[in-house]
Amino acid sequence: MRQHRDEISLRTEGRRLTEITRRIDGFTEDSGIANGLLTAFCRHTTASLLIQENADPDVQLDLMDAFARLAPEGADWRHGAEGADDMPGHVKAALAPASLSIPIIDGALALGTWQGVYLAEWRAAGRQRRVLLHAIGD
């Protein structure tokens, strides 16, 4: 049994989905693990990780619109010390996962044809974000 870990650091461009599949693919290749499990963990309370369609960019836009309807800015939030977008960001992060588990088969992520891994930034302004990666297997 082998283990490998690393961290992705990226600057987001504000409220949007940023695809990180290629960076995770590179980590998986570097791990030398042929069969196992990758865990990705977002180290923030106003960002999330998602597996979503990467073929039609309208899917990403529609998802962001749906989340905006679920937790709008300007609602009567008690927590507002860090700006109007902060508490809606916390709610969205509570609804979307902070971590993902993806099988590694024959040295590659076992994603479906149209699946990509995304970091969802829920705040309006870009931020420096970190995603911890850990792979275990043979």
Rank of each mutant, 00 (worst) to 15 (best):
Q3V: 07
Q3F: 05
D6T: 12
E7M: 15
I8Q: 07
S9E: 13
L10I: 13
G14M: 07
G14Q: 10
R15H: 01
I20F: 03
G26Y: 07
G26D: 11
T28Y: 05
E29P: 02
D30K: 01
A34G: 09
G36H: 11
F41S: 03
C42N: 02
R43H: 10
R43G: 02
T45E: 08
T45H: 04
A47V: 09
A47P: 01
S48N: 10
S48G: 10
S48I: 03
L49M: 12
I51L: 04
I51H: 06
E53H: 11
Q60H: 06
L61E: 04
D62T: 00
D65K: 10
A66V: 14
A66K: 14
A68C: 08
R69I: 05
R69L: 04
R69T: 11
L70C: 14
L70T: 11
A71S: 12
P72C: 10
A75E: 15
R78C: 13
G80M: 05
A81I: 13
D85Y: 09
M87L: 15
M87R: 13
G89C: 09
G89D: 03
H90R: 00
H90P: 02
H90F: 10
K92P: 00
A93S: 11
A93D: 04
A96P: 00
A96F: 06
P97T: 01
A98M: 08
S99I: 02
G107S: 05
A108M: 09
L109G: 03
A110P: 02
A110V: 07
G112H: 13
T113W: 12
W114D: 10
W114E: 00
Y118N: 09
A120L: 12
A120H: 01
W122M: 05
W122N: 05
W122C: 01
A125Q: 14
G126W: 11
G126T: 14
G126I: 09
G126N: 13
R127Q: 15
Q128M: 08
R129Q: 02
R130L: 07
V131H: 03
V131I: 07
L132A: 09
L133C: 06
H134L: 15
A135H: 00
